[in-house]
Computed example of a mutant assay.
Amino acid sequence: MKLLKAMMMGVLSIALLNAPVSGFSFDSGIQTVEASTQAKAMYAKRQVSAYKSRSSTSGSVMTIPYGVRIDRLATQSSWSQVRYKGKIGWVASRDLVEIKKTEVLDTKKVVTLYASRSTKAKAVTKVPSNKQVTRLATNKSWSQVKYGGKTGWVASSSLKLRYTKETFALKKYRVKEVAPLQSSYSTSSDVIATLPDFGVVESVERYNNWYKVTFDKKTGWVEAKYLTTYKKESVKEAMFRIYGDSYEIFKSDYGVTARKVDDIVSVEFDYKNQSAILDIYHMDEKNPQKDEYLKAAKVITLFNGGDPNTLADKMFYMDTEGYEWEDDIVYDKYKISFSSWGNIHVDWAYDWN
């Protein structure tokens, strides 16, 4: 019996020596442990490449777009292993932001934190009145909160919300009306830009009812009341909305055209060649039709970004003054030029800067 037991132990020892060691990798002869973490929702701060291993020379597995939701599976040193659309690769941790929601509340009175959702449970600690706690979870009428390094449950009715801070995967919003873009999440903060009506903005962060957005290379905060869920439009749908019933909207060989015959206005949006041609005859030379340029600028910037008011001003200037001595005007990604036929051309196919 002893001999049989010894033989079995010997076979088991050989098997263990030859078996691969789970959770370990070898790097330059040094044994290291993969630092696994529970999968966490993240988004990329910019477009990044994911690699086969923890090195940018190991070969790219995939490209992860800015703002999309991904799952972080593990971390090691300055690298994170992520999963996106079924593929797994490694990216620099500095390029990732965790998707999370933080709720900070004030206690309305002195409260007791309990170990579970019952006043008969063990008391964890007492929290004085008007102190801040962080909510971790809710269950029916109870909130699990953290205070001073201790965690427990308290009746939700004994708390009042101070603020909610949230980061999330990239979302698009449409601006419902002209809105101020402010330097902070307060109506008393500085206005750093004006968001045009029907403009499209993107956000990955919210503070209470304020959203952090970037517009025309300026980043600030806008109140939620000015935003609505973004619904993608075609060029033709946008033109019907912006130009209205007094214009004829029709498809041409190259794009979509808006025409107002009485005022001799024609605007052709050539999205195949990424340009627009504006043929606008000013019925009254002392009072040119500047609003026509704003309509065109709204359509162009809706799909390509930028401030429609600035673009409209530069198109109008080229048509009324700049054509005499300017070859072209560059604004952001747009080049504005005046043709020998008397048309204004706006091109956005290239980076002109």
Score class of each variant (00 low, 15 high):
W153R: 04
Y163L: 05
A169T: 14
A155I: 07
W153V: 12
E177C: 06
K160W: 05
P180N: 05
A155C: 03
G152W: 01
S157L: 03
R174M: 09
L159K: 07
S143E: 13
Y163K: 02
K150Q: 15
S158T: 10
L170Y: 11
V145R: 04
L161E: 14
L181R: 08
K165A: 10
K160Q: 14
V175Q: 10
S143L: 06
K146D: 04
S158K: 10
E166N: 02
K146G: 06
T164D: 01
V154A: 02
G152H: 08
Y163M: 03
A179G: 12
K172C: 06
V154G: 10
Q144N: 14
G149N: 02
G152K: 01
T167W: 05
K172H: 12
Y147G: 11
E177G: 05
A155N: 11
L181V: 05
F168Q: 07
L161I: 13
L161G: 14
Y163F: 11
L159H: 05
V175T: 12
R174I: 06
T164L: 05
S158C: 01
L161Q: 15
F168A: 11
S143M: 07
Q144E: 09
T151N: 11
Y147R: 03
P180M: 03
R174Y: 06
K176I: 13
T164K: 01
E166D: 04
G152E: 04
S157Y: 13
R162Y: 08
S143C: 06
G152I: 04
E166C: 00
G148N: 15
A169W: 07
K146N: 14
R162D: 15
A179L: 03
K150R: 13
Y147N: 04
Y163C: 00
K176F: 11
Y173T: 08
S158F: 06
K172M: 09
V175I: 15
Y147C: 03
R174W: 02
Y173Q: 09
F168T: 10
L159I: 08
